[in-house]
């Protein structure tokens, strides 16, 4: 700046030293450049921090009384020691009535835990199959790359309607309409499956490459051929994977809908909750947790058969269950 100093207007700083306004402009420009560079490079992080601050402020606005958190530890220990532990495993013993006709080693199949679990699995299976059967045509109608707006929006409206209520509310509704039992559970889970799976499916369909659809349209295929000849095979892997996920999801939720009398293991959980027999409730919850883990492993394997990675190398059962270090020894 020395060569242009003569042209710049002079001013004095707080100590009385003479400085040029050109220097101050330059430092200001530098500061702006650094700040904008900092903002650009860390904008997502800053945005995330901003969201956290907003969430904290919103919680505060609801007057949460943070002091209550102080007793959490004591309450948890007391509840755990006095009510939950040890679990009462009598839930996997055969019921006194009706008489158990199973072989001696299989008497657990007459227990409430087994019967409830099997019923929940049945509800989840039937609801997934029925839900998929109805949701697929609806998702075809709801896809904007396949159907005009006047068809896709009403279809989306239907799907949104059926998933806007959680499955437990649908279960309550069907218990009122048709009474207690697994049929109410099946219908409740089916309605919810239609909405949830339908949304996943139409998003998958809308996400497929437009090339095959355009080629099909140019050749003169109709809606039916485009749906079943192009869309179905192109998105089949994703759709099957979603159905498997939905079965797992329905099982987890099937344990809850029993609480309102819609069948399954939730019925027994609700029963023992009412009698304050938490040791039995925790036994049921442990069983549910184990079955969910097993289903999760089966689901990972089953879905791997329908993803593109599966073409290259499908995971073995061991690769899901064991850590990589042990896996290498196993493969050797």
């Amino acid at each position: 700046m020395s060569d242009s100093g003569s042209k710049e207007s002079k001013s004095r700083d707080v100590d009385g030293d003479q400085v040029t306004s050109g220097d101050s402009i330059e430092s200001k420009v530098d500061f702006i450049a650094i700040a904008s560079r900092f903002w650009y490079s860390s904008r997502w992080f800053l945005l995330f921090i901003g969201l956290l601050v907003v969430a904290f402020r919103v919680t505060n606005s609801m007057d949460p009384n943070w002091g209550r958190l102080a007793n959490t530890n004591n309450n948890l220990v007391t509840f755990f020691q006095e009510s939950l532990w040890p679990p009462d495993w009598s839930v996997i013993e055969a019921q006194a009535y009706p008489p158990c006709l199973a072989a001696p080693g299989l008497s657990f199949t007459c227990s409430t835990a087994w019967l409830g679990m099997i019923e929940t699995l049945k509800i989840a299976f039937v609801a997934t199959i029925l839900g998929m059967t109805i949701s697929f045509p609806l998702s075809l109608l709801a896809s904007r790359n396949l159907s005009p707006n006047w068809v896709s929006y009403p279809a989306r409206f239907l799907l949104a309607g059926s998933r806007s209520l959680p499955s437990i509310i649908w279960a309550l509704f069907f218990v009122i309409v048709i009474g207690f039992g697994p049929l109410s559970g099946i219908l409740a889970m089916t309605v919810y499956t239609i909405g949830y799976l339908g949304k996943l499916q139409y998003e998958t369909i809308e996400g497929i490459d437009r090339g095959p659809l355009e080629a099909s349209k140019a050749m003169g295929h109709g809606w039916f051929e485009r749906s079943f000849g192009v869309i179905l095979p192109e998105s089949a892997n994703g759709l099957i994977s979603q159905v498997i996920f939905m079965f797992e999801y329905n099982f987890r939720h099937g344990t809850v809908i029993g609480i309102v009398g819609a069948g399954g293991i939730g019925y027994y959980i609700n029963l023992y909750l009412k009698f304050l027999q938490y040791d039995k409730v925790i036994a049921y919850l442990i069983i549910i947790f184990i079955v969910v883990l097993i289903l999760d492993v089966v689901s990972i394997y089953a879905r791997s058969l329908f993803t593109e990675d599966g073409d290259v190398r499908r995971p073995s059962w061991w690769s899901i269950l064991l850590p990589p270090s042990m896996l290498r020894n196993k493969e050797d």
Binding site: D209, L213, E214, A215, M219, G220, H221, S235
Partner: peptide, 23 residues
């Protein structure tokens, strides 16, 4: 164009990736 009258080979071919050659 009517059905089947016009054949189109797009730049990215427009094939169904998960379906067989035959399909």
């Amino acid at each position: 164009a009517s059905r089947g009258e016009l054949g189109y080979i797009p730049q990215r071919l427009g094939l169904i990736r998960h379906a067989s050659v035959y399909h």
